[in-house]
């Protein structure tokens, strides 16, 4: 009796969650559509208003300053000497390096997103660490057991991710997890070597991909965290 009640409540909860999910998806799609429309309008206006070089210069200046501050933070971290002489040296070197390679560090990053990205990254980090820990234990078991029950295979899957930096993040986190190694990426198709059936099935669930997509805010995926964010805004609207 109690079990059936429990199942019914769980069903109801899932229904509600599904409804909320659909609503959130529609809302996000419409907002994304509006954003892209306004963006294209803005781009058109920008093209009409400015010479094509002006936008480029603005982008270059933004990249230059961002690179400068990031490098200067790194310099202070390395040097640890806060007197005027060493700080002046640091400013000069950071100016030189950001002149030499201002277009490398922030090649295609949308600037407004970086703060949310950092927040989500630190929120997702414990999950990755726990995943690495359990995979470590599993691979140690495989290596130490005398029968050596390995079953190597190569997985191929197409990813949902879009930008190259999130591809690289996914590939590196797959490689960082023991037992799986990313061999190559060709046009969004991943080639992954897995040592075992268990590791391969862990990878096939796509949980890691979802986490990466959440961290890098890829557009067409909806997650529980997104729904929670949207629901907070809903409450404010009501």
């Amino acid at each position: 009796m109690e079990v059936t009640v429990l199942i019914q409540t769980a069903d109801k909860a899932f229904e509600i969650l599904e409804k909320a999910r659909n609503e959130a998806r529609e809302l996000l799609y419409s907002s994304a559509k509006i954003a892209s429309e306004t963006k294209s309008l803005e781009a058109k206006r920008a093209e009409q208003a400015f010479l094509s070089g002006a936008q480029h210069t603005k982008l270059a200046i933004r990249n230059y300053t961002l690179t400068f501050f990031m490098l200067f933070a790194f310099w202070v971290l390395l040097s640890g000497r806060l007197d005027l002489f060493h700080l002046t040296l640091g400013v000069l070197s950071c100016l030189l390096i950001s002149y030499l390679s201002y277009d490398l560090l922030f090649a295609n990053v949308r600037i407004g997103d970086i703060r949310i990205m950092f927040k989500r990254f630190f929120a997702a980090a414990p999950w990755f660490l726990s995943q690495i820990f359990t995979a470590n234990l599993h691979v140690a078991y495989l290596a130490l057991s005398p029968k050596m029950p390995i079953d190597p295979s190569i997985l191929r899957f197409n990813t949902k991710l879009e930008s190259d930096i999130s591809w690289v993040a996914l590939a590196n986190s797959i490689t960082l997890t023991p037992g799986t190694i990313t061999i190559d990426i060709r046009d969004g198709e991943f080639f992954v070597h897995a040592i075992d059936k268990k590791v391969a099935s862990d990878l096939d669930t796509g949980e890691m991909e979802d986490k990466i997509a959440h961290v890098f805010m890829e557009a067409d995926h909806i997650y529980i965290q997104d729904i929670l964010d949207v629901s907070r805004i809903f409450g404010e609207l009501k």
């Binding site: 990031m70 490098l71 950001s98 560090l105 090649a107 930096i165 690289v168 590196n172």
Partner: peptide, 12 residues
């Protein structure tokens, strides 16, 4: 991508 991110830090 990794080299692109690493190179400025190597230089500094």
């Amino acid at each position: 991508a990794v080299a692109r991110i690493m190179i400025p830090f190597i230089q500094i």
